[in-house]
């Protein structure tokens, strides 16, 4: 595993200090560059671990759900590397808005199935992956893409992403002589955030997980049970799961990993949410000031930092740049009318 992370995924990922944007915001802004990993996001950390486990269990096929396509691409990549079959379920809405990643998965030899049920986004892709898995469990491993789902996934996926927080902690101490004042990450299911948080949860660092306003499970949900976990969940008065709505396919999910619900409940982490328009601004801001095109998911974390900058003045702020934005460029061309 360590060798794969080093020689295949490209770990450790670097930390970039954003001098221009930091000055503009009046903070010291550090980015943990998960976008520079092979396949372009943090998702590869978890996938390499699960694919190795699947091999060890004698399974020769992987199924996965994907929203933005980053987890699907990472799973297809690991399947190609380890000579496994791969099928990725993706909501039909996301197949359209993340077309680049659909093509990448196909190039990598995976079969991509557009899911037409329900909201036709991430939640429904999870349903369909589970339905596949219950029928094929003897040959197939469900390579779940976030810190959610039934035990042991939330725990296992966190352990595979712990490397993000552990590296970042050592890098911050080297650079700042201290842990950061604030650690910020976007939250869909919550895997990149929990990976980052796990490096700092026992420190004084303030932990901030940023949800999309249209999918704020911690912010607006109540405890519920779906996909094999009990956690905050957007639901109606009868417990029907509600559809999330976010510009970012990777965060378009009405639930959240149970450990985030726990961290929120004990007050160790906070979960504000940002609007699509704040995200669009942050996406452009990072490109213009630092020459980095971020994934729309990660732009949520930056959008909160921009909003909170006045209260963060003079602080050291570490943000997880969970993925790169190539996949979002076509969608942003439409959004920005260019």
């Amino acid at each position: 595993m360590d060798q794969l992370l080093r020689t295949y995924a490209g770990r450790p990922s670097i930390i970039t200090e954003c001098g221009n944007l930091g000055r503009e915001l009046g903070i010291r802004l550090l980015l943990k560059r998960e976008d520079l990993n092979h396949t372009g996001s943090h998702k590869i950390n978890n996938v390499l671990g699960q694919a190795l486990l699947a091999k060890r269990m004698g399974k020769h096929r992987l199924v996965a759900e994907t929203g933005a396509g980053q987890h699907g691409v990472a799973t297809a990549t690991a399947a190609a590397l380890m000579s496994m079959e791969c099928k990725v379920y993706m909501g039909a809405v996301d197949v359209t808005r993340q077309a680049l990643n659909v093509f990448r998965m196909k190039l990598l030899g995976a079969q991509v199935e557009a899911v037409e049920s329900g909201s036709r986004t991430l939640k429904d892709a999870v349903n369909e992956a589970m339905r596949d898995w219950v029928a094929t469990v003897e040959t197939t491993h469900y390579c779940l893409g976030s810190v959610m789902g039934p035990h042991p996934y939330p725990w296992m996926v966190r352990e595979f992403h712990r490397v993000v927080g552990e590296e970042a902690r050592a890098q911050c101490i080297e650079l700042l002589g201290d842990v950061p004042d604030v650690a910020v990450a976007c939250v869909g299911g919550g895997s990149n955030a929990i990976g980052l948080f796990s490096g700092f949860v026992d420190d004084r660092t303030r932990l901030v997980g940023v949800e999309p306003a249209g999918g704020a499970a911690v912010g607006r949900g109540v405890p519920g049970v779906v996909h094999g976990m009990r956690s905050f969940l957007l639901q109606d008065e009868y417990g029907q799961v509600q559809e999330a709505h976010s510009i970012s396919a990777g965060l378009d999910y009405p639930g959240v990993g149970p450990e985030h619900s726990h961290l929120a409940s004990i007050g160790r982490a906070e979960y504000p949410n940002v609007t699509d328009s704040e995200v669009i601004d942050a996406f452009q801001l990072l490109a213009r000031t630092e020459g980095i095109i971020t994934a729309l998911e990660s732009a949520h974390a930056l959008a909160w930092i921009v909003r909170a900058a006045p209260e963060l003045a003079g602080r050291n702020v570490l943000m997880n740049l969970s993925g790169r934005g190539d996949k979002d460029v076509a969608q942003m061309m439409d959004v920005l009318g260019k």
């Binding site: 329900g118 219950v134 996909h227 029907q240 509600q242």
Partner: peptide, 8 residues
């Protein structure tokens, strides 16, 4: 239920 995972 909105998400009937056991159903075809």
């Amino acid at each position: 239920f909105s998400d009937p995972v056991m159903d075809g």
